[in-house]
Amino acid sequence: MIPIVAFATWRECLRSRSFLGLLALFIVFMALSRLIGWISATDGDIVTTDVVFSLQSIIGVLVAVATGTALMHVEIQQCTLYTVLSRPVARWHFVVGKFLGLALALLCGQLTMLVLSLLYLALTGATVSWPLVLAGLLTAQEIIIMAAISLTWTTLSTPLLAAALSLATYALGHAVHELPSFLTYVRASWGQEMIAWAASLVPNLGRFAYRNQAVYGQELAIGDALQTVIYGLLWIALLVTITVAVFRRRQL
């Protein structure tokens, strides 16, 4: 049943107005990004590349949060969930299927954005390199983690609050990456340990922001890239497991 639910979710996501609208918004902003490059006191290529790759991430996060938080709520509100669960479908099948469908749709969106970005950069004369492709793929994984976060928060609260909490988790996830610089200000070693322990409760999304180095053609070691991918997969697995656990006990 998981593939059926996943396929239906994937199709539903791709048809959703917010998904397509934000993709269109990405194309418009991407086309305008060259303007920022032009007004900078440089040849503009690096500035444009930075802006385009940030857009991929920001719009991807918005799509993930908007779609992820609405996904379950719509099913409950429109009572379609009961139709599905009245069949021999385990709740965890439903959650995993929903997540896989959402992740697949987001991946399609991210790959589309990446291909469009690279084409746009190549057409405008900016350098297109393999590190940029890898940076785009790591951003895609960051977005899928955000989808998992949104799904978890949705099962714990209302859609609006889940959206706010998801965005807060995004901010916190990037703040965690800067934590080592801040720990030097904490004198007590127990305080440092406490903060480090608390930080480990949030996914370190800064690990996926390789785009900041890729723009300059800096290569990422294969070991580091693999470590980041595995780290992301583990977080996705953990978040989906939490979502399943909560959803199984939820009174519908």
Binding site: S40, I46, V47, D50, S54, S57, Y170, A209, V215
Partner: peptide
């Protein structure tokens, strides 16, 4: 900067 250091800087 929330992971968008380069863009924010520019």
């Amino acid at each position: 900067a929330f992971g968008h250091h380069n863009t924010v800087a520019k």
